[in-house]
Nucleic acid binder design. Structure first.
Lengths: 120, 120
DNA sequence: CTGGCTAGTTAACAAAAGGTTACCGGTAAA
DNA sequence: TTTACCGGTAACCTTTTGTTAACTAGCCAG
């Protein structure tokens, strides 16, 4: 009975799932932060380091977005008892699961750009 | 034969591609409209019929969203010279290409819902 | 003549998302 | 003592996004 097929869902549930995905991954900064953490996965990513690495983001936005990502289990937050107190952020193993999704957005976006260029 | 490898792109180009995809497919109504058109692909979809089918959408939003979708070649618009003038909208063949993308958003969203439920 | 159908448009507003500036308590170097 | 770095937060402002209600013009039935 149990195969690799997705659970049966209604049309409305699918639309909700899309809405959820876009809430968690959408917006101006979330995927940029995820990408930065993934590119620097072997380094210690403190708040300030991330802010310097993700171009243009303000402390307020970075703080909010990291909290959202942590709530959604995509990023972990660890306080370190150092002299000036530091906080380390890291992408979680579960967080890696977003990359196949973003890959399909990248592919479609690149293809779409070509398609629209042809039109003009 | 098509080359299945994507063109080489920079990190910034990938982020732009994601932004483009989300611009074209994001927002509250676009995918609901696309889905409705796809579910009723063998019917004649007039403006009013779509408005009745996509629950809650106002004339203003439907008008704007259909224009955006048409600009992006995802939907076609055909004026019919009927007694009260009618306009038929249809999803284009190219428009069908969004469904693999949305499918990955649906899968991830459904999985994420389970993941978050476990947390509580 | 009235009212309803067609496909929209316009203006005014509200809500959500994002940006700017200033500031906090703590540590430490100059 | 002043200065700067750390990880933020609060107040305020702007921009984007979406909602509501009123209105257009043409055609038709009662």
């Amino acid at each position: 009975m149990k195969d690799h097929k997705r659970q049966e869902v209604t049309c409305e549930q699918e639309l909700n799932a899309i809405r959820d995905s876009l809430e968690v991954l959408g917006g101006k900064w979330k995927l940029r932060i995820m990408r930065h953490l993934n590119n620097h996965i072997n380094e210690t990513n403190t708040f300030k380091k991330i802010q310097r690495g993700v171009e243009g983001i303000s402390a307020k936005m970075l703080s909010k977005e990291l909290q959202d990502l942590e709530i959604n289990l995509l990023v972990s937050r660890t306080m370190m008892d150092t002299k000036p107190i530091t906080v380390q952020y890291a992408i979680t193993e579960y967080g890696q699961s977003v990359f196949p999704v973003t890959e399909s957005l990248v592919s479609w976006g690149l293809n779409h750009l070509q398609k629209i260029k042809q039109k003009v």
